[in-house]
Nucleic acid binder design. Structure first.
Length: 577
RNA sequence: UGGGGCGUCGUCAAGUGGUAAGACACAGGAUUUUGGUUCCUGCAUUCGGAGGUUCGAAUCCUCCCGCCCCAGCCA
């Protein structure tokens, strides 16, 4: 007998459009006002400027949705620009993953893929201009000395002895820095601003440093590299960005950007800062995420427990849900910690409407129907998605030997436990009512190893002609027809709501964030497409692992559980599940 | 204790002088062949605190308190 072919799995088509209108926020208001007054001639040009030194995470998604969303809604453009000014930390692996993730999230930068490294010559020329104007100088102080001279939060800094070198000497030295005449760390180019500024970033910030390292894009063409602050504001200027949206910690840098752009007398975008995203039970700092990967706490950047876009993709989070989440959390200037439950809500909301239902038993308990005709198999008709009539129905084989969920049986049922127990009758979804007549245990361990039941032939499909009711409906799988699958059950990676606040966040990692079980799934799932998303009825949403499904093995990652009212009752009444 | 920011429900978040939206979470209840979904209902007499201005303040003023960011040749 050939099993029903897999249903059409739920898959996301990348879309640029919004599912629901985006709630407004102070940045949209500014953009709206600027369009109204014609401040930028009605132009809206944003950009998403990642450094290719790590994978994108949900915090980046907030910025991506904001910047691309602004562009889409105001008929503008959003550039993808890599701020790749530090060859020591950056790599093409990261630029590739970033592009893939932005695309997967549903955004399109068309031909506007830029790299700060493409501006190196122009940036160099700008630096020379500053030197000409007496606004930048080559400093021979080393890193330690520069730090000493900088002063502290409460004390002004001191001027470097090299600060007042003649322009010609600075020009010559800077040129020779570029030519590779000096070793790494021996000299830097600094802006000549104000060593007594209360804003430390204005105390003669470094503009260029010597780094004889090859760059993933420019190779060995350069041995001096511009600093982020100098590069970033000028890159925005070069690209004629109108609204340079960034996170709050760059507010202090704005004074420096204003200084650079004003002294160079170039196009001057408007910077607007917003609060970065923080999520409960997770960390979002690049440093900490790298630590998780490098310490082997997780299996890689795309481990389903990671808050990275690639991790969430592998976990089964649909891009639509992530976008919706980003729209719901809002954009404001106050520090915030968003409840992870909101993300899960968005995931469930989307998956409820789109994921086909299927039956799978994660912790199988054998059930033998004693009055079932020997060798008989029936095809039960099951609804693919009650939320979507167009999803149709499928056939699921039923026989006299089944598996049900071990959690669905209790020898001594506690109060409010509606599921199977000795003598009790329940419904098997889309099949028959069954009644438990006997419990078979392992004589040594006392563990329940099998249930003997009888079925009522009158209840085919799940309704009793005599109108009698049952209080529970259980999912099941026919033992001889079921397919084997490995199912990975994920929990939060961290035990603490704010792991980042622990002295050592690695100590808050849960040892049980991943549990792997051998499950029995309905035969139609055989050959399910990698990345496809399903609802295992009564359990949760699961996604076929895109990577580990080779050699015909079926591997599912649990995306998120269904809301579980029983678990809440059980917990509340101190009944262990 | 220099400078820059921020403080509205458990968590996000509207509100910009006229008498506290919405969402998540949570708690009840209805419907249900997923203890799912859906649907009702409840959930800030109060906006970090104290004064003041005003007929009227979360919104204006003053002082105070708390939290975040900045001392990379990282971004």
């Amino acid at each position: 007998m050939s099993p029903t072919p897999p249903q059409k799995p739920e898959r996301s088509e990348p879309t640029i459009g919004k599912e629901t209108p985006v709630p407004s926020n102070f940045i949209r208001s500014i953009v709206e006002e600027d369009c109204r007054t014609g401040k930028w001639d009605g132009r809206v040009a944003t950009r998403f400027p990642p450094e290719p030194n790590g994978y994108l995470h949900i915090g980046h998604a907030k910025s991506i949705c904001l910047n691309f969303g602004l562009a889409a809604d105001f008929n503008g453009t959003c550039n993808l620009r890599f701020d790749d000014t530090n060859p020591l930390k950056e790599d093409v692996e990261y630029v590739d993953s970033i592009k893939e993730d932005v695309r997967w999230l549903g955004f399109d930068w068309q031909d506007r893929e830029y790299y700060a490294s493409d501006y190196f010559q122009q940036l160099y020329d700008y630096a020379v201009q500053l030197i000409h104007k007496g606004l930048a100088y080559v400093d021979d102080l080393n890193a330690d000395e520069i730090r000493e001279y900088r002063g502290t939060l409460t004390e002004p800094g001191r001027e470097s002895p090299w600060r007042n070198r003649p322009v010609e000497e600075n020009l010559d030295l800077f040129h020779r820095m570029r030519e590779g005449e000096f070793p790494d760390g021996s000299r830097v180019l600094r802006a000549k601003i104000d060593m007594a500024s209360p804003n430390l970033l204005m105390r003669d910030p470094t503009l260029y440093r010597i780094r004889k390292a090859s760059h993933h894009r420019t190779g060995d063409a350069w041995c001096i590299y511009p600093m982020y602050d100098f590069t970033h504001c000028l890159s925005d200027s070069i690209e004629h960005i109108t609204h340079s949206v960034c996170t709050l910690e760059f507010e202090n840098n704005r004074e420096l950007y204003d200084w650079v752009l004003a002294r160079l007398d170039v196009y001057h975008p408007q910077q607007i800062e917003f609060a970065r995203l923080n999520l409960t039970y997770t960390v979002l700092s690049k440093r900490k995420l790298i630590a998780l990967v490098e310490n082997g706490v997780v299996q890689g950047w795309d481990d389903p427990r990671m808050p990275t876009i690639s991790g969430m993709r592998r976990r089964g989070y649909p891009p639509e849900a992530i976008r919706n989440f980003c729209d719901r959390i809002g954009v404001a200037r106050r520090d915030s910690l968003v409840d992870f439950a909101l993300l899960e809500f968005c995931v469930r909301e989307y998956l409820n409407r789109h994921a086909p239902r299927v039956m799978a038993v994660l912790d199988p308990l054998k059930v033998v129907i004693e009055n079932w005709p020997e060798g008989r198999t029936e095809e039960m008709e099951a609804v693919n998605n009650p939320e979507d009539p167009a999803a149709g129905t499928r056939k699921v084989p039923f026989s006299g030997t089944l598996f049900i969920e071990r959690d669905d049986f209790r020898e001594e049922p506690p109060r409010k436990f509606f599921r199977l127990a000795p003598g009790r009758e329940v419904r098997l979804r889309y099949a028959y009512f069954i009644r438990c007549t006997d419990v078979i245990k392992d004589p040594d361990t006392g563990e329940v190893v099998e249930l003997r039941c009888t079925y009522d032939p009158e209840t085919r499909g799940g309704d009793a002609p005599d109108g009698r009711k049952v209080k529970a409906t259980l999912h099941w799988v026919s033992a001889s027809h079921a397919a084997d699958a490995e199912v990975r059950l994920y929990e939060h990676l961290f035990a603490e709501e704010r792991p980042g606040e622990a002295a050592d966040f690695l100590t808050t990692v849960r040892p049980d964030s991943l549990r792997t079980v051998a499950a029995k799934v309905e035969p139609g799932l055989t050959g399910a497409e990698p990345g496809s998303r399903w609802q295992f009825e009564r359990l949760g949403y699961f996604c076929v692992d895109p990577g580990d499904g080779e050699s015909g093995r079926l591997v599912f990652n649990r995306t998120v559980t269904l809301r579980d009212t029983w678990a809440k009752i059980a917990k509340k009444t101190k009944i262990s599940g």
